[in-house]
Nucleic acid binder design. Sequence first.
DNA 1: CTATAATGTGACCAAGCGGTCATGTGACTT
DNA 2: AAGTCACATGACCGCTTGGTCACATTATAG
Lengths: 223, 223
Amino acid sequence: MPKQTFFNLPEEKQKRIIDLAMDEFASHPYSKASLSRVVTRAGIAKGSMYQYFEDKKDLYIYLFDLAAREKMVYIQNHKGEENDNFYTALERILLAGTQFNLEHPKLSRIISNIMEPSGELVLQEIFERSKHMSYQYIHEMLSQAQENGSVRKDIDVSLAAYMLYSILGTGLLEYLLDVLNVSKHELLSDPEVSKRLNPEQIRSIISNTVNFIRNGLEGKSHD
Amino acid sequence: MPKQTFFNLPEEKQKRIIDLAMDEFASHPYSKASLSRVVTRAGIAKGSMYQYFEDKKDLYIYLFDLAAREKMVYIQNHKGEENDNFYTALERILLAGTQFNLEHPKLSRIISNIMEPSGELVLQEIFERSKHMSYQYIHEMLSQAQENGSVRKDIDVSLAAYMLYSILGTGLLEYLLDVLNVSKHELLSDPEVSKRLNPEQIRSIISNTVNFIRNGLEGKSHD
DNA sequence: CTATAATGTGACCAAGCGGTCATGTGACTT
DNA sequence: AAGTCACATGACCGCTTGGTCACATTATAG
């Protein structure tokens, strides 16, 4: 956690520091992100940074936490009714997650940058923990869906949870950016770019994704 | 490419250097891999390394190339007849790829470590190129399968290719290691660990994976 | 034995990093 | 006016990195 000193700062200054730090940790994996660069850009002294945060880890964990919370809230707000059909719910969550990634590319990258092996076991633990949470969540959804018949009984729920996790985690965003002809770098540096994207196209891609998850490559299509 | 000097070396020495370099680049992403560490372990002078290779990139690209070739050959040798059913072929390829990853964890890691953003555009290009190749290969398989009816017509082949790519690339190995209760680190440091794994279990997981890809979560199972 | 070419070497360099600390500054108390 | 406390500062430290280079060593050849 940041030191009290940080929270005593005028909000504007807090925000400026956090913003620039987010920039840095979004555009570089943890081990390459540089505090020196952040303080230079923020126009403050190196020493000040260490009056606000314990160390580099402390700062990154704080940023990660902010980003992860914001994403959870975002998805929670967009996920619709509790009693939705499993596939409808899945589609909503996918859509919400994707929208978040497009609207908040920095936060999205800060979250996903925790995957990089840094040698710091604290970070690895956080990564494991957050992975476990997502995985658990999907697993739970799948189990329920299996009970009420939306998912056939002979599906191995653990395996399926992992597959969904890997599709949701990396595959879909990559594909979207590819199709929309936008590089990750562009998305990061130009916050306007996501507004140029065609929402209908995104919807359609996600709908196709869920259709694939539901019916596979060989099965019949639904409408 | 390595300099001629490197190829003039006694084969034993070449091999020792390559082995240790593989160790290093498998256990650290490119930007954190250290030549200093390699030369120390290899018992040679820093300067010698630069008589063998142009620079760090040169070395890594060479290692990547070796690993990628070996993996391609491995899969080629295990993929079975040309006129296989699409899903059978997919299963064979998946199995071969997985076996390779388990039997040659170092090579596997060197290959996947190219994904890390390093700031070096040469590496990024190589990454893009290799991604494109895999993607293209899957795309081609899918298109053929769609023509002969193994894949339904309303599947978006590009999207499906991406999904398969992300499942094959990361999801499956992660899941396997998780189920088999082996950490990536263990797999790297102990070459014997892969022999303790139950081949039947692996087969079964891959079979389930293909079944999921084929029939989705809702559809009927095949045997 | 000598000359030439090929290899090996490790001290050295500049750059970058995370992190420290003695010192300075300004506001609020007493 | 004196003292106290929170905050700001940037030179500085130790360390590691990729990469260089003048020199030593060895092998080959005449």
